[in-house]
Design a binder for these strands. Structure first.
Ligand SMILES: [Mn+2]
Ligand SMILES: [Mn+2]
Ligand SMILES: [Zn+2]
Ligand SMILES: [Zn+2]
Lengths: 126, 126
DNA sequence: CTACTTTCGCGACTGAGTTGCATTAACAAT
DNA sequence: ATTGTTAATGCAACTCAGTCGCGAAAGTAG
């Protein structure tokens, strides 16, 4: 169980994800809202939003934690298996809608698949 | 240019990777050799070994940095594009020899592909 | 052995992320 | 609208992986 009360801080963070479809690093989010709330609050809100299947997280190439909006997830079922793309020039991170087939690994049970591609995004490769 | 002098510390670290084919986190390596060398030295040796194409690095699910032996790389060309598998029970990490096809992403140039699978390894799923 | 330069140890530091606790603010009930 | 309950927040202190600067030690060539 994640979000129970719709506080001002929760609304602020949610709006950031609503208005743009791109992923945000926690560090960047903290910077954006630093006049409105404490960094601990940002971490806690992101935690709760993720638990509720509203956003999902992954690690960037830099080792930072990134979050982006989910498309068809709920608190009980997280279905975000898509890869992510981090631009090495502008550092923007996107969720990719491509399907990547993982072959079954002999004698192993695969629970999760994290795929991070890096390179140049549409803007930077043009 | 990485390793220039074969010091005792370098030999010690190299042996760890020689004797077993599995990946090691830096934190674990530091623990293993803590009586023989300083942690800063471990970081620096790993850096140099990677530059020379002797080992390669990647991020674990935990966010820690992991290293494993390379198979056909050199200082000029790193060809480790294989996925990695982290066991959620024993926490062991392996390099996988499977080929995973990444479809071309429209209007993007892909430079690197990091794939991390998690689940149960051969031992833990048996 | 000597001279040169890389490598190392150590201590201090950085920065992302966490924790504990007192205070504030949702919100449901009255 | 007022009150009571407790989730959520702010703040300060903390953790811990990873980095940095610098003097000392050790590898290597001559
Ligand atoms: Mn995504
Ligand atoms: Mn590997
Ligand atoms: Zn870009
Ligand atoms: Zn295992």
């Amino acid at each position: 169980m994640g979000i129970i009360r719709k506080t001002k801080s929760v609304t602020t963070v949610l709006q950031i994800f609503e208005e743009k479809q791109e992923a945000k690093s926690v560090v960047n989010l903290i910077e954006i809202v630093k006049d409105k709330m404490n960094k601990t609050t940002v971490y806690r809100i992101l935690d709760r939003l993720e638990q509720d299947g509203i956003i999902h997280s992954f690690n960037g190439k830099d080792g930072l934690k990134w979050y982006a909006k989910c498309k068809g997830c709920s608190a009980s079922h997280h279905s975000d298996k898509h890869p992510h793309f981090q631009c090495t020039e502008c550092n923007k991170v996107e969720c990719l809608s491509v399907e990547i087939k993982i072959p079954s690994i002999k004698n192993h049970i695969v629970d999760s698949t994290d795929i991070l591609l890096t390179g140049q995004c549409e803007v930077c490769s043009a």
